[in-house]
């Protein structure tokens, strides 16, 4: 991928900074081959299921289950895909999932960074109590509130509707913790002080100073939230009772349960469901491989 260009005060962590190398450069070159060997075994293990799912999705179920099995991609992909389309509303589910993930992410970034900025840089009455409460409830497992959340959704009339997925997801304390931690160290107080002297209020400081400086932290929170929303399964399984309104995950699971005998078709569906998130990840990944050494690999 492209060499990352990072805004913000990144110099600190960059290994490419003229900090001295850990190991004396005289170390034997031979020894440096071993890690690559080990790492490639791991890479193969990590990527093999993807390859195998492509093999399954492009062959027929019968090919896969023959002895010896087919180990190379076949020519039945379109047939398997059209079988998926015949059984579930794939694009409807895709659109639902995308809308929920995008809206959730946008709102989480906004709300959490606002709250986090307040906690990171401002002293106000109740700050400690509120943050302690956040910490305490963060420790509680999610399913503790599953039943009441369902009953609340019932009262709101949101059962079977997409806002039932978005709104509870906004109340995730993780983002506030993360952004508070990030902003308290990366947003320089001097700049804030200066901007206040210029007459900037809280929201302008947030928008003009905190948000630009904390962009890498926000990028992480964005992908974390997006992936979590995209892949959420338990909650949609419970609240999305309307068969016309499903997400990719619940549709996929239905494909498996109702038509589980056609593995090739199920795999084609699974593959199609992960491609968008993979593309999104690869697209955003430049934020994550962001350190100096990344530049070494073109």
């Amino acid at each position: 991928m492209a060499a990352p260009t990072l805004p913000g005060p990144e110099a600190a962590a960059g290994a490419a900074a003229p900090a001295p190398k850990r190991r004396p450069s005289g170390a034997a070159r031979r020894r440096s081959l071993l890690p690559h060997l080990v790492l490639w075994v791991g890479v193969l293990a990590a990527l093999f299921p993807f390859y195998w799912s492509v093999v399954m999705a492009t062959n027929t179920t019968r090919d896969i289950f023959s002895t010896p099995p087919k180990l190379v991609p076949g020519t039945h992909l379109l047939e398997n895909i059209s079988n998926v389309f015949a059984r579930i509303d794939f694009f409807g589910a895709l659109a639902n999932t995308a809308v929920v993930a995008v809206v959730t992410t946008a709102l989480v970034l906004t709300l959490d960074s606002l709250a986090a900025f307040a906690f990171a840089k401002f002293e106000f009455p109740g700050r400690r109590v509120l943050f302690g409460l956040l910490l305490l409830l963060f420790m509680l497992p999610a399913q503790l509130s599953l039943i009441p959340q369902f009953l609340i959704m019932r009262e709101l009339g949101w059962i079977g509707q997409l806002q039932a997925l978005v709104v509870p997801a906004l109340a995730n304390a993780f983002g506030v913790f993360w952004m508070r931690q990030y902003m308290s160290t990366s947003v320089p107080d001097e700049v804030l002080d200066a901007s206040r002297l210029d007459g900037c209020g809280f929201f302008r400081q947030w928008w003009h100073v905190a948000v630009p400086t904390a962009r890498p932290g926000l990028a992480f929170l964005a992908i974390y939230t997006f992936v979590a929303s995209w892949n959420d399964y338990v909650w949609p399984l419970i609240v999305l009772v309307n068969p016309q309104v499903q997400t990719l995950q619940t549709s996929l699971a239905q494909l498996n349960v109702s038509f589980g005998t056609d593995y090739s078709m199920v795999m084609a569906g699974a593959l199609m469901a992960i491609i968008p998130i993979m593309v999104a990840f690869l697209f955003l990944s430049r934020w994550f491989v962001a350190d100096g050494t990344a530049g070494a690999v073109k």
């Binding site: 990590a46 299921p49 799912s53 995950q249 996929l252 199920v266 998130i277 990944s285 070494a296 690999v297």
Partner: peptide
């Protein structure tokens, strides 16, 4: 410990984590 391919390794190792559990479970089931 390596200097080359660092970001490639990161991506390759991280990739399984962004895939949906449902899809992955279907793969492993097969």
């Amino acid at each position: 410990s390596v200097t080359k391919l660092k970001s490639f390794y990161r991506l390759a190792y991280f990739l399984p984590n962004v895939t949906s559990i449902v899809a992955v479970t279907l793969f492993f089931g097969a």
